[in-house]
Design a protein around this nucleic acid. Structure first.
Lengths: 210, 210
DNA sequence: TTACTTTTGTAACCATTGTTACTGCAAAAC
DNA sequence: GTTTTGCAGTAACAATGGTTACAAAAGTAA
């Protein structure tokens, strides 16, 4: 049995289910920045995240992006899950935020386990629950917050997920995630630096106190 | 067996499950405008919508509202569902959009049925799926559309749900749903009227061609 | 070193949306 | 009928965020 799998999911699933996962699942590893699922792709499996983090993005017709939320260890992508059950194409893009490891479960098994294992069923429900909550948070942020507050939230999230106060990206990349322009982000970052909340260098932002 | 229940859910659930629903569920009727669930309420049951429509709203700390989506016949509120399983308080407000009839199912039964009935399980998954989709649409609207397009979308939705081109509300009510101000809505409605897309009277909007 | 590319800083300006304030009108209450 | 209340129309202005344009700085390659 794969050790990483056991470590990440051992406390959730019984031995029997873990064995089945180990048997039919395939371990995948992705480098930070690689695209895991593209919009419109047929969803062939469901990823159980073992290590790292994945960011989930939405896109409109013009190709404008928006970050929806991050997925971390012990989580799965309920959106993918949802697509699996509906046999439909992906409505979102998934990109590795850090180097990641996950187990890919074939669609067919998911269905079967849902009736056989109570722990699996609970896991799936809890995944849906978590995703709905994240979506609500995202909606709150877009609808109720100004860009400066959204930016602060974003920086906090990124720092937390990386477990490090140093965020390595360009202003342009942040602008894509928040669906705004580079100039706006530069402007607001400068303001945050003036307020002593962050410090700026080329390609990196250090979170001091957000 | 309740006839309305059979009519709305007969094609989804087997006879046995329908009987159980009929037995433990209580039929509720609400007038348009009545609040069904308030934010912070403990969720004691899950509503299966038989007739009418319910609108689901989100609120921020300042009491500012935002319409998330509508629920129609044959649907349930996945948010409520999610709260049930998590034993938590409601994160949203549900208000009857039209006069509505629904069956309230006690939380305990839900869990039980999830393991016993495949049809129920599918129904629950499909409800989650539908809700995630609606949330995505909502996010798209807020993030990618301007207020005039959001307003058109809103009017179309309301007309469709009511099955009638005549929408009865004040500009202020619309402003609340879209989380903007009355003046902005009046301005945009006037523009739509100029363009021949709607006609305006006090307390009502007639959709002509949106 | 120099030349080139990428990233960031900044100013000036525009567009959309939000705010305040006031008016006229319609319906309901008296 | 008159008065009162709530709704809608509109103007003027403010705030936020988006756009264009250009310069300076930092990093990379030659």
């Amino acid at each position: 049995m794969n050790e990483e799998l056991k470590e990440a999911y051992g406390f959730l699933f019984e031995k029997e289910l873990l064995n089945e996962i180990d048997e039919v699942g395939t371990i995948k590893r992705m480098k930070a920045g690689e695209t895991i699922i593209e919009i419109g792709d047929y969803v062939t499996g469901m990823p159980l995240l073992i290590n790292g983090a994945i960011k989930i993005l939405r896109e409109d017709e013009d190709g404008d992006e928006l970050l929806l939320y991050f997925i971390e260890r012990g989580d799965t992508c309920a959106m993918t899950l949802s697509c699996c059950l509906g046999q439909s194409k992906s409505e979102i893009r998934a990109v590795a935020e850090t180097d990641t490891t996950f187990v890919m479960i074939p669609v067919a098994k998911m269905e079967e386990w849902t009736s056989r294992y109570k722990t699996w069923r609970n896991f799936v429900f809890q995944a849906y629950h978590a995703r709905l909550s994240e979506m609500l948070d995202t909606i709150d942020a877009i609808a109720f917050l100004n860009m400066d507050q959204r930016l602060m939230r974003y920086l906090r999230d990124r720092a937390k997920i990386k477990g490090d106060d140093l965020i390595q990206s360009t202003h342009q990349e942040i602008a894509y995630d928040l669906h705004t322009s580079r100039v706006v982000i530069s402007r607001l970052l400068k303001k945050l630096e003036m307020e002593g909340k962050i410090s700026l260098q080329r390609n990196q932002i250090k979170v001091i106190d957000l």
